[in-house]
Design a protein around this nucleic acid. Structure first.
Lengths: 147, 147
DNA sequence: TCATAATAGTTAGTGTACTAACGAATTCGG
DNA sequence: CCGAATTCGTTAGTACACTAACTATTATGA
């Protein structure tokens, strides 16, 4: 019995994690391109389809992103006509993000995306749900540890 | 029984995947900082500790990165004294990457990292192995689909 | 009330990661 | 053996994602 190599690239969860994230995002690229969206922008749209006018801070919390990361991302979404950015009337500090008519309409097309992606992953639905739950466990552990 | 929202952010595997990758990489940051390494640079070192003089192309294949991504990354690793970059004697096109004495020595310190990270994830080893295997399944599906 | 603290975004700078276009070296077919 | 195709890296340009430092606004408390 040989000593397992704890430093072997293929044994690292973090390596599998970063590669899987990259290749999965790449899978979305040709699907999202016709909608004029990148993958992070698509996640912003998902958050807005759930709750429509919401602040940058609210989006940053939901997406687990820093406001500084989201800021230029939202400017691009405004430039492509998906959203409007305007100061909140009640709190001048807050940036209110609102879907445009175009942005709202895109939802219908987007509704077919999850199934198309799941199909190309060629994994049973239960496996994908188990994977998602396992990833959420990782997220919980990593974000509480960072406190 | 309500219709499950297929577009809900929390239901997306791709969202869990990107967040988990980001938060896990963030976990490595304070650990790798004393070694003068970022996380992608650490992965390069893992690949080099497995096989020492190897070409940029070989590294790119092992790390699943484009040569264009790896190129500036290797220049930084050379600037920090972890590796040497030189043309192969047998094929002038190939860039041979070799660990420096410092780079080789770092391996001993690095050997404690996987256990430290696994501990802070607070997940049983079998769960982590299952997660890694599941991620590798995703990688296989996404990369063969891209052919 | 008025200085101070907290909160919301923005900007600047660093480091991946990708595609596309390119130059240089090698290989291969005729 | 010589021109075309292939292969190997590099460069340029775009887009995230982060930290740190900053402005502006609102809330707090002596």
């Amino acid at each position: 019995m040989t000593e397992p190599n704890v430093l072997a690239l293929e044994n690292q969860v973090c390596f599998a994690l970063t590669v899987a994230a990259r290749t999965t995002v790449a899978l979305y690229k040709p699907i999202l391109e016709p909608l004029g969206l990148t993958h992070p922008q698509y996640l912003v749209m998902l958050a807005l389809w759930e709750e429509n006018p919401r602040t940058l801070r609210s989006l940053a919390d939901a997406l687990r992103l820093e406001p500084a990361t989201l800021s230029p991302l939202l400017k691009r979404l405004e430039a492509t006509g998906h959203i409007r950015r305007e100061r909140s009337a009640t709190d001048e500090r807050a940036l209110q993000v609102t879907l445009t008519e175009h942005g709202r309409r895109l939802r219908q097309i987007a509704e077919t995306i999850p199934e198309r992606v799941a199909r190309s992953l060629e994994m049973p639905t239960e496996s994908l749900i188990a994977l998602r739950d396992s990833l959420n466990e990782v997220i919980r552990a990593t974000t509480t540890a960072a406190r």
